[in-house]
């Protein structure tokens, strides 16, 4: 099973002076268990694309297939509930959706809506709170009393609690400090590895693309401009630059080294890859050449 987009078009507010193209003829395959990064400048259609994954938006024409679910312009909203549970969706600044009196109630909200009984939902919530690393003593507190970072975790737990098989993340680390960012990304990586979740990450952080994704999709004006391994995307520097995209830190550093005279047979994207290739061009630690 996988996720496929087949000639998907989407128009916001069709037949009005406000009509705006959201997606244009999108064809895409996200294999089961893959980690895909969606990148592109602002307004390029990233959020529009991922909202099709759980039926929040339905294609104006074309078809989206998510595992067993088929989504077309005529799919009725009544049939979407299972899809909502199957595909968990973490929006930008998800802490803005918290509302319940206690943290644990807020996290259990999803499972309750999806028809689990009170006890099961509570257990699922406690489990999810553990996954995101919330300490036990905050569970009975009001979510509005917590720090920004903790509120973010509560909101993410609220999505994980329903135990989705596909996890969509729209800039989940925006506004967090660097360590908070790293912890959160490692948490997603772990979910991906341990539970084989299919992860779709919308991000402006090219280091995250390099470090975590096995596939990258570049959006521009509602179209898929390029899709493939991060390596192949970044291999064409001029093109990347034209799309107003950035490079991973290690890659930028490698470009500087290339100007000095170093050569790389494969463009390094992570600091590990850079170190690997540099080591061959540097003396060993004992001071002698190799």
């Amino acid at each position: 099973m996988a996720i496929t987009f087949d000639h998907v078009n989407f128009t916001y507010q069709p037949n009005s002076p406000f009509a705006a193209t959201g997606l244009k003829d999108v064809n895409l395959t996200l294999p089961d268990g893959s980690f895909t990064a969606i990148i592109g400048h602002t307004g390029s259609g990233k959020s529009t694309l991922v909202q099709h994954l759980n039926g929040l938006l339905k294609p104006t024409s074309g078809q989206v297939q998510v595992d067993d679910f088929t989504l077309t312009s005529t799919t009725s909203n009544r049939h979407l509930k299972d899809l909502h549970q199957h595909v968990g969706m973490v929006f930008q600044f998800p802490e803005n959706q918290l509302f319940d009196q206690t943290v644990v109630k807020d996290i259990a909200f999803g499972p309750l809506n999806f028809g689990f009984d009170e006890n099961t939902a509570h257990d699922m919530a406690v489990q999810a709170a553990k996954t995101v690393g919330l300490p036990d003593n905050v569970l009975e507190r009001s979510p509005f009393e917590l720090s920004g970072g903790q509120m973010r975790r509560v909101a993410i737990a609220g999505v994980l609690a329903s135990q989705p098989r596909v996890l969509v993340l729209d800039e989940p680390t925006a506004g967090l400090d660097p360590l908070g960012r790293e912890h959160m990304m490692q948490m997603f990586e772990q979910l991906h590895e341990e539970q084989q979740l299919t992860v779709v990450l919308v991000t402006h952080q090219m280091d995250d693309v390099a470090d975590y994704a096995d596939q990258a999709v570049v959006m521009g004006h509602g179209e898929v401009l390029k899709a493939g391994a991060p390596q192949t995307i970044f291999n064409d520097p001029q093109w990347v630059y034209d799309q107003q995209l950035d490079f991973p830190t290690a890659t930028k550093f490698a470009f500087q080294l290339q100007q000095k005279g170093f050569s790389f047979n494969q463009l390094p994207l992570t600091e590990q890859q850079l170190a690997d290739q540099l080591a061959d061009q540097l003396p060993a630690m004992d001071g002698k050449g190799r």
Partner: peptide, 15 residues
């Protein structure tokens, strides 16, 4: 956005 986030958590606004 909030409506979408809650729909994704299983709320049905029109049902």
């Amino acid at each position: 956005t909030i409506m979408n986030a809650q729909r994704a958590r299983g709320v049905e606004f029109n049902n």
